[in-house]
Amino acid sequence: MSFASPTTTHLAAERRGPGLLRGAMLVLVKDLRIEASSRVVTNQVIPFAGIVLLMFAFAVDPARQSLQGMAPGLFWIAVVLAAVLAVSRATAVENENGARDALRLSGLDPAAVFLGKVAAVAIQLVLLEVVLVIGVVVLYGFPIVAPGLLPASAAAPTVATAAAGVLYATLAGAIRSRETLLPLLALPVLAPVVLGAARAWSAAGEHSMGEAWRWVQLLTIFAAVLVAFGVATYSGLLEEA
């Protein structure tokens, strides 16, 4: 880009529309608006995650000791399952009425579209996680021993889940069998997220802060790589169809 003369840069900037962050912000606001009017996450996905928590408790030995120990793992499985549903729904909206083409022709940088969508999904996931944390504390008796570490260790897995979800939902985009294909594609990629996040929380629960911190670092690396991958490949994925 540095080789281009001022005039060309100017023209290109005009053609490309808003910058990366502003574009991402626009997409983020758009997606949150859609959610605000459709209420799919609040009225369907969060209740689904709640019933999943209940079902886990029915399925395992309801002795408090074992549920308490399993709480971090069950929590993250519920989050990932709900996330797959939420992302699938968000993409379905995008595929109706040619919205995808409109997005593609809007002049927004595809990377900005990706980042905006990831941010929107992440925000919805945070909402979901808050509700579920209350669920595991109340239903499973999960002790909150490190109130500071909990959100810190939830950030990276949330971003990683959102990034993988958006990436694969776009891959499976206009495909008719998306609902069944998306979990098959996304869950193996999210397996390390579930493992790492659950271990981080367990370690925090046992006051092993050093270990918990190491897991948070691993998760951060994973999230960074997934986001970078999405930014690099999203233009190709959005241009198709």
């Binding site: 694969y168 891959l171 069998s177 294909l181 594609l185 490949t233 198709e240 169809a241």
Partner: peptide, 23 residues
Amino acid sequence: ALRQVPAAPHVRARRAAVAGLVA
């Protein structure tokens, strides 16, 4: 499974390539 999904050849190829690189 992603490859099995019917699509225009280049569309399918691009999807598959991205999924393959992640995997």
